[in-house]
Amino acid sequence: MDVFMKGLSKAKEGVVAAAEKTKQGVAEAAGKTKEGVLYVGSKTKEGVVHGVATVAEKTKEQVTNVGGAVVTGVTAVAQKTVEGAGSIAAATGFVKKDQLGKNEEGAPQEGILEDMPVDPDNEAYEMPSEEGYQDYEPEA
């Protein structure tokens, strides 16, 4: 019985440690998101679009440190934060509304985080759909 109880105690310690790591990862992701939003706020009209992409990228980098179902929630929060940063930029006159959601080359930025393969159960990952990809044929 002692062996059984000791095993359960060790398992509990492992769960607590994993929860603490997840909590730490979420806190880091939130900190990076805040950094990115402050970065966007300090940019001029020309830099705002690039700044919004930076927020998304920093958040995406930190999301990889967070495991399990938390990833889905962090990704949703990050996307809403990026959308909010863009709205703030438009409201303050840093950028025109028609410039939001495009990178410096004018290509749409939507789907940055949505296409990231995420499995809350950590069982399997699927690649994003290939609808947006084109076949590449090298020139002879």
Rank of each mutant, 00 (worst) to 15 (best):
M5L: 01
E123C: 15
G31R: 15
A85C: 13
K102C: 09
S87T: 06
E57T: 05
V15E: 00
Y125F: 15
A19D: 00
A53N: 12
N65C: 13
L100V: 12
A30Q: 01
A27Q: 14
Q62W: 08
V55Y: 15
V49P: 01
V118D: 12
M5K: 12
G93S: 05
A27Y: 15
S129Y: 04
S9D: 02
K96E: 08
M116I: 12
A29N: 01
L8D: 00
G67L: 13
F4T: 00
E20V: 03
I112W: 09
S129P: 11
M5N: 02
F4P: 00
N122G: 03
E105M: 11
T81D: 02
D119T: 11
L100R: 05
T81Y: 14
V77T: 03
K23A: 10
A91Y: 14
K45S: 04
E83P: 05
T44H: 01
D115G: 14
D135Q: 10
V16R: 14
A29M: 07
V70E: 01
V63C: 06
E20C: 07
M5F: 08
A56K: 10
A29Y: 06
V37F: 02
G68W: 13
T22E: 00
A69T: 08
V15Q: 00
E46F: 10
E110G: 11
Q134W: 13
V40L: 09
V71H: 09
D119W: 03
E104H: 08
V48K: 01
V82I: 03
V63E: 01
E61Q: 11
P120L: 10
E123H: 09
E28K: 09
G84D: 03
G31N: 09
G101N: 03
T92A: 07
T81M: 08
A17W: 12
M5I: 01
S9F: 15
S129W: 03
A17E: 05
A27V: 12
L113Q: 08
Q62T: 13
A11L: 15
E13G: 04
T54H: 06
D2C: 03
L100Y: 12
E126P: 13
T72N: 08
F94E: 02
S87E: 12
K60R: 09
E126Y: 07
K6I: 09
H50I: 03
V82M: 15
E114F: 10
A140K: 11
N122V: 09
A56E: 01
E83G: 10
T22D: 00
V3G: 02
T92C: 07
G47N: 04
A90C: 12
A140V: 06
Q99E: 10
H50T: 15
M127R: 09
G47D: 04
T75L: 11
G101L: 14
K32R: 04
V82K: 08
E20Q: 05
Q62F: 12
G68T: 15
M1D: 00
A89P: 03
K58M: 10
S87V: 07
D115E: 08
L8T: 00
T54Y: 15
A17V: 10
D119F: 06
P138A: 10
A11C: 15
T92E: 03
K32C: 02
M127F: 14
Y136K: 13
A29P: 00
E104N: 15
K97A: 12
K45G: 03
G111Y: 12
Y39N: 06
K96V: 11
M127W: 03
G25T: 12
A11D: 00
L38D: 01
K6N: 03
S129Q: 06
E28S: 12
K34T: 02
A30P: 01
K58I: 05
G31V: 04
G25E: 06
N122C: 04
E126S: 06
E28G: 05
V95D: 03
E83W: 08
Q109W: 05
K96Y: 09
E105F: 13
G132C: 09
A76T: 06
G41Y: 13
K102S: 06
E46R: 09
S9P: 00
P117D: 08
K58A: 08
V71P: 01
T72R: 11
T92G: 09
A85H: 04
E139K: 08
Q134N: 08
A27K: 11
K43H: 04
V77G: 03
D119C: 11
M127V: 07
K80F: 15
V48Y: 10
V37I: 13
S42N: 13
K80T: 04
D135R: 09
A85G: 04
V48L: 13
S129A: 08
E20T: 09
P108Q: 11
A56W: 13
G84M: 15
K58V: 07
A107Y: 10
V48Q: 00
A29S: 01
A85M: 13
G132H: 06
P117K: 08
A56T: 13
M127Q: 10
D2R: 02
E28V: 14
E83F: 11
D98S: 02
Y125H: 09
Q109R: 07
S9G: 10
E114A: 03
V16S: 04
K96C: 14
K21H: 02
V95Y: 10
E130G: 11
V37G: 01
S42I: 09
A76S: 08
G86K: 14
G25A: 15
G93Y: 09
G7N: 08
A53E: 03
P108E: 12
G25I: 11
G84N: 10
T33Y: 04
G31K: 13
T59M: 04
G68H: 03
V74G: 02
V37P: 00
S87M: 07
A78M: 14
G25V: 14
M1W: 00
E139Q: 03
K43Q: 03
E131R: 06
K96D: 07
V48P: 00
E83T: 12
K12G: 02
V15Y: 08
V48T: 02
P108F: 09
A107M: 15
Q62E: 02
Q134I: 12
K10Y: 12
M5Q: 01
A53R: 14
V63W: 15
E13K: 14
M116C: 07
G41A: 15
E46K: 08
K10P: 00
H50G: 04
V37M: 06
N122I: 05
A56C: 15
P117Q: 12
T44R: 02
V77H: 01
V55R: 01
T64P: 02
E130K: 09
K97S: 06
T64C: 13
G47C: 10
G36M: 15
E114N: 11
K60C: 11
L38K: 07
K60Y: 11
G68F: 00
I112Y: 04
D115L: 09
K97N: 09
Y136S: 09
A76W: 10
A124Q: 07
K80E: 02
V71Y: 15
G25R: 08
I112S: 14
V48I: 11
T64G: 07
G41R: 03
P120I: 09
G7Q: 04
V52T: 01
S9E: 14
T72Q: 10
G67I: 13
M5W: 13
P138I: 05
F94N: 04
G73Q: 11
K21G: 00
K58L: 12
N103E: 08
F4D: 01
K6S: 03
S9A: 05
T72L: 09
G41M: 09
V26W: 14
D2S: 03
K23S: 04
S42M: 14
A90M: 14
V26M: 15
T72I: 11
K32V: 03
T59P: 01
K97I: 06
